[in-house]
């Protein structure tokens, strides 16, 4: 087990370098002058030159990368934003909970819809429920998050006034200058983004669950259980479910890890101050440290969730448990 974890750690370091180097390379390829933006509209060419020197932008790209790594190792810091000199650590610390609220809440929504529906339509393939479900799956898979988000926001927020149109409230009260706070307001503001996520992912997951349950139902050991005299309920609970959820766990882990890096469209539509929106504005400002910071953060998320998947898998499936 420790050996496995250590190997994973090496992988993580490797991935970290690959992801950050690629970010720097892309930044280097794109013609942009963050110094001009950072210095402000009224800055003189001398000012811009000074800012450029101050931000190390006059150094070759590999040297800039070296400063980034050095800063990370020595000061355990992802650096400062070019634009407003705010610490990238604190930007991520501020944005990540918003994205996490969206992703985890959405996951609860989409799983609690797709698992039962997937199982039911697997049990009665080609039934009316199954056909209706598969139609919705098709719509959900084809629809774009922006479209879904705008429709929901227009219908429930603007027309029916059931939910806010957009915006975010902190779960934990006490942050200065907040317009609203507390769990109730938080959930109230998150409900439409969650539903957007649910429609997007439930479609994929219903199909995934349905396919896996159907496949497991035709396994020989399910027939063995029936030959033992097990009831359909027992067959389902003890023999089908755990085996059919194995692939779902893998996909879920990967989806969660990826989505935590920022749900760009959904955050933009509902004006949620999460990582996705942060990346967009950082991109518009050529704010390399913030972009790199988010890339590092989402790499770590993907690695952590893959680790969680592996551990869960080992727990669920004795065949790959290290002996």
């Amino acid at each position: 087990m420790t050996q496995f974890l250590i190997r994973r750690l090496f992988w993580a370091v490797f991935l970290f370098f690959v992801a950050t180097i690629i970010t720097y390379l892309i930044f280097w390829v794109i013609p942009a002058d963050p110094a001009a933006l950072a210095a402000g509209k009224a800055a003189s060419p001398a000012d811009i030159l000074r800012v450029r020197h101050f931000l190390h932008l006059d150094r070759p790209i590999w040297e800039q990368y070296y400063y980034f790594v050095q800063n990370l190792v020595v000061h355990r810091s992802l650096g400062m934003s070019f634009v407003n000199r705010e610490s990238v650590d604190s930007i991520i610390g501020k944005d990540a909970p918003v994205t996490a609220s969206l992703v985890f809440g959405g996951a609860v929504f989409w799983l609690s819809l797709s698992i039962p529906v997937g199982i039911l339509s697997a049990l009665r393939p080609r039934s009316i429920l199954d056909r209706i479900t598969m139609t919705f799956v098709l719509i959900g898979i084809s629809a774009h998050p922006v479209w879904i988000g705008l429709i929901l926001s227009f219908l429930f927020g603007y027309k029916l006034h059931l939910t806010p149109i957009a915006g975010y409230c902190n779960f934990i009260p006490g942050s200065p200058g907040a317009q609203c706070e507390g769990p109730v307001q938080w959930a109230y503001h998150m409900i439409l983004p969650w539903i957007t996520f649910m429609i997007l992912f439930a479609a994929l997951y219903v199909r995934l669950v349905r396919a896996n349950v159907m496949e497991t139902m035709s396994e020989d050991y399910v027939r063995t259980a029936r030959a033992k005299g097990a009831s359909e309920r027992r067959v389902m609970v003890h023999h089908v479910l755990r085996n059919s959820m194995l692939p779902v766990v893998t996909i879920l882990g990967m989806d969660l890890g990826l989505a935590l890096g920022g749900a760009i469209f959904t955050e933009t539509i509902f004006n949620l101050p999460g990582l996705g929106r942060e990346v967009i504005s950082a991109y518009n400002a050529d704010d390399l440290p913030v972009i790199t910071g988010v890339v590092v953060f989402s790499t770590i998320c993907v690695i952590i969730f893959n680790l969680i998947v592996d551990v869960t898998y080992g727990f669920l499936d004795p065949r790959i448990r290290p002996s």
Binding site: Y221, T224, K228, A230, H238, N243, D317, P318
Partner: peptide, 30 residues
């Protein structure tokens, strides 16, 4: 009746047992 008065075994022993339950659990279930 199934599993009590009449029992059945199948061709492929590799796939006829549930891979995520112990042998004991599966026998006890019967």
């Amino acid at each position: 009746i199934r599993g009590a008065t009449i029992g059945m075994i199948f061709q492929d022993p590799m796939t006829s047992l549930n891979p995520v339950k112990t042998i004991g659990w599966q026998l006890e279930e019967a």
